[in-house]
């Protein structure tokens, strides 16, 4: 196996608030290998976006952060700000959820891509950078790229803006692309197109992708590995098959159960009852326990550890072993 591109160890992120520290990410460790697509799945507030922002070091100054984020053997969390800035946009680039607000409304789309290029290519002329921006827009499927580059974001549709965001993100051939809910704000038909562009980009550039989403359905066709987060913790991690067909975690199963099925083979939807716990005052024991259909007394007393099940498969559940038996007969 190749050396990991990104190795996150014991990452813990907390936001100070008047009522105490909100634990947004608790002891999360994972790896991303070159060219791999890792999907990070969870409900909103599970800590998946905060993890990504911590990798980019884009959290606010007051945030408590510990652990390590090794990128190509460099600890990003220990890096001086100016060196970190050189990595942002060049080695690690990010695509955000809402393309309507993620582009600066007062600069043309082309200029914003040009800025991204010139920041990391100091010797390139502005003209060349502009040509490159037009090429990039063409590559992500923006029609009439030359004309569109001179337009402002408000003249773009949502899907086109997200393509422009992708063009901007890949402008420096990053080794890692973090896509934070890239399709959530888009229409269903456009979602598929944008995912197609992401795949195209991956094929063309070979960059690894960290795909953050709450939509397990989106993950199925695009990811190599999946990691499920709940209430700031990693709950299950595994290959796509392990998660979808051999899940050892009640939360993952509940998530799978709640996916609407387009073929209509499922009779009813099973939304997960209740709400995620407060991150300010998390309950004792397993954070999923109040909503879990399999909770036992132990779950109330003790937070389960992440248990290694197979080489790439781990689950945080006291009853992970029992679930192996159930897995065979579980409704997929």
């Amino acid at each position: 196996m190749t050396a990991p591109l990104l190795k996150v160890d014991h990452l813990t992120v907390g936001f100070p608030s008047k009522a105490g520290v909100v634990g947004a990410v608790t002891d999360v460790s994972f790896e991303i290998h070159p060219g791999e697509v890792l999907a990070v799945v969870g409900e909103s507030g599970s800590g998946k976006s905060v993890t990504a922002l911590a990798v980019m070091r884009l959290h606010s100054k007051s945030t408590h952060i510990s652990g390590s984020v090794m990128f190509n053997d460099t600890d990003l969390l220990a890096l001086p700000e100016d060196q970190m800035r050189a990595i942002r946009g060049r080695d690690i680039a990010m695509i955000f959820q809402d393309p309507m607000t993620a582009l600066n409304p007062v600069f043309t789309v082309g200029m914003q891509i040009v800025e991204a290029i010139l920041l990391h290519h100091h010797d390139m002329t502005k003209q060349k950078a502009w040509e490159r921006a037009v090429e990039l827009l063409d590559m992500v499927g923006v029609p009439e790229p030359r004309r569109r580059a001179a337009q402002y974001p408000h003249e773009f549709s949502g899907g086109m803006r997200q393509r422009a965001m992708i063009a901007m993100a890949i402008s420096n051939d990053p080794k890692l692309l973090i896509a934070d809910e890239p399709t959530t704000a888009l229409d269903v038909t456009v979602q598929a197109q944008v995912m197609e562009v992401l795949h195209e980009v991956k094929r063309a550039t070979g960059s690894a992708i960290m795909l953050i989403t709450h939509d397990l359905g989106l993950v199925a066709g695009s990811a190599d590995r999946v990691q499920v987060m709940y209430a700031s913790r990693l709950f299950e991690t595994g290959s796509i098959d392990e998660i979808f067909y051999e899940s050892r975690n009640p939360y993952t199963r509940a998530l799978l159960d709640s996916i609407p099925d387009l073929e209509g083979t499922k009779d009813e939807l099973h939304p997960i009852p209740g709400n995620p716990p407060s991150l300010l005052r998390p309950p004792a024991g397993c954070p999923f326990r109040p909503r879990c259909s399999m909770a036992i007394e132990l779950c109330r007393e003790q937070t389960p550890a992440l248990i290694q099940i197979a080489n790439s498969h781990a689950s945080r559940c006291h009853r992970a072993d029992e679930l192996a038996v159930l897995a065979a007969g579980a409704p997929a």
Binding site: R85, R88, G89, F96, D98, L119
Partner: peptide, 15 residues
């Protein structure tokens, strides 16, 4: 606090 400011920082734009 706008998203596009975060985008700019993510591009590596100096503060």
């Amino acid at each position: 606090n706008q998203d596009y400011i975060r985008t700019a920082r993510a591009k590596g734009v100096p503060e």
